[in-house]
Write a protein that binds this DNA or RNA. Structure first.
Lengths: 201, 201
DNA sequence: GAATAGGGATGACAAATGTCACATGATTCA
DNA sequence: TGAATCATGTGACATTTGTCATCCCTATTC
C-alpha cells in the first residue's frame, strides 16, 4: 500500500484527484490541504510515502515544502504537480531532489503511473518539460536588480523605488538602465512583462 | 441518465472529472475537449444535456461557446466552471443564460450536486461569487481607451501606440491621461496592473 | 601593493511621459 | 434647431525616464 499526501489549492482538482487515487487498490491518500504551511505540518506528522505538491499555493509554495522535507531527512518522496514548465521552478525542484515533476496538462492516469514508478525508485520528469527547458531564458539579473525591477513592477516611480531601497534616484535609474540593456528592452513595462513571462518574480 | 460534455484545457482536471462523473450511475460524459472550438463542434453534434465549460481555453472561451449554444437554440444547458470570480465574466455568463457558474475552488462533489440541480431547472451560482461581485470594480474605460491601454500593456511606447492605431501622438497621451485619471493612478504600469488584476483584458 | 571588480553616486542630456487648456468636426439627443 | 457629447487633435509645460561618462569606496585577487 502506497500512502500519499496531496497539497493543491484548487479544491476541484484536489478533491477529484483524492477520490480517484483512493479508488486504486494500492494507493491511499492520508490527507490533503490547500496551502503549503499546513501541508508541511501534515506531512511531517503523517510521513506519507509520497507527497504530491502544487507549486503556487498560499503561505508556502510546494518547492518550499520540498525543501523542508529534504532538510528534515524524511523518507517521503516528492512529486511536483504544476501548471508551469518554468526553468526556474524546475531548477529549484531538482535542487530539492524531487522524485517527479508533472504538468497539469497531462492526464490523471499519468499521475497514477508516476506514483508507482517513483515508488520503485525512479525519477520522473514530464517530457514536455524537457522540451521547454531548452529554449527557456535564464534570468540574467542580479539580486539587487531583481529587487529594483520588482518594485518597478508594482508601478512604483523611480523616486518611490529609491526611497524603499534607500538608494539615490540616479542609482535606481542606473539599475533600471542596466536591466533594460541586459534584457534587450527599452522601458519598464517591457522589462516587467519579460520577467513575468519567465516567472522570474 | 444525464449526458454531459466537458470542455477544460487542463488535462489533469478534465480527465479526473470525467472519470469521477462517469462513476455516478445517473451521469455519462459523452466527450471532452481542451479548446473552445472543438468543444462547440462536439456539443452541436452530441447534444448533451449539460455542457461544463471552462472559460479560459485556447481558440474560443467557454463564454463564446455558451453564446453559440444560446444562438443555436440547443436544449443543452451550460455550467461554467472557472477559477475566476470576475464581475465581467459573470456578467457575460448571465447574458448567455448559463444555468450554473461554479468556481474551481469548490470541491468536485459540488459539481455533481450542481449538475443534478441544474437538470431540475434550477440555476446555480457559487455563493462566493456573489460575495466577490459586490466589491468588484467595474471597468470605467471606453472601448478606445481599452485598445490604447492594451497596446501600452505590451510595452509599446506612445509613438508605437499612435502608429498602430492611426492616432496622433498627442491623442494617445490624452487617452492615457484620461485613463489614469479614471483609474486613479499616475503611470502606465499602475494602470496596466489594475486592468490585469480586474481581468479587463 | 597594484590591479580589478562591484556597489553606489553625480551630473548632464535627449527623449518620453503626464497634465492641461483649448479647438474642431461629427453625432446624438431634447 | 440648438445644446450637449464625443473622438480627435494641437500646443505648451513640467517631470520623469533612459542613457552615458565618470567618480568614489571597498573588497578581492594576483
Amino acid at each position: 500500500m502506497i500512502t500519499l499526501y496531496l497539497a493543491e489549492d484548487q479544491s476541484m482538482l484536489s478533491s477529484a484527484l483524492a477520490q480517484l487515487l483512493n479508488l486504486e487498490d494500492d494507493l491511499k491518500v492520508l490527507g490533503t490541504s490547500g496551502d503549503g504551511q499546513t501541508a508541511w505540518l501534515d506531512i511531517n506528522r503523517l510521513k506519507p510515502d509520497i507527497a504530491i505538491l502544487d507549486i503556487e499555493m498560499p503561505k508556502a509554495t510546494g518547492l518550499d515544502v520540498a525543501d523542508d522535507i529534504l532538510a528534515a531527512h524524511l523518507a517521503t518522496k516528492v512529486i511536483i504537480l504544476t501548471t508551469f514548465a518554468q526553468k526556474a521552478y524546475f531548477a529549484r525542484a531538482v535542487k530539492a531532489k524531487v522524485s517527479g515533476y508533472l504538468l497539469k496538462d497531462s492526464p490523471s492516469d499519468d499521475l497514477v503511473t508516476a506514483i508507482r514508478n517513483v515508488m520503485t525508485g525512479q525519477t520522473i520528469y514530464d517530457p514536455e518539460l524537457v522540451r521547454n527547458m531548452v529554449n527557456a531564458a535564464d534570468n540574467p539579473l542580479s539580486d539587487q536588480e531583481m529587487v529594483v525591477l520588482k518594485s518597478a513592477a508594482d508601478g512604483d516611480t523611480t523616486k518611490e523605488i529609491a526611497e524603499k531601497l534607500f538608494l539615490s534616484n540616479g542609482t535606481v535609474r542606473n539599475y533600471l538602465s542596466a536591466i533594460f540593456s541586459k534584457l534587450g528592452v527599452h522601458n519598464r513595462l517591457e522589462a516587467v512583462n519579460m520577467a513575468k513571462n519567465n516567472k522570474w518574480f
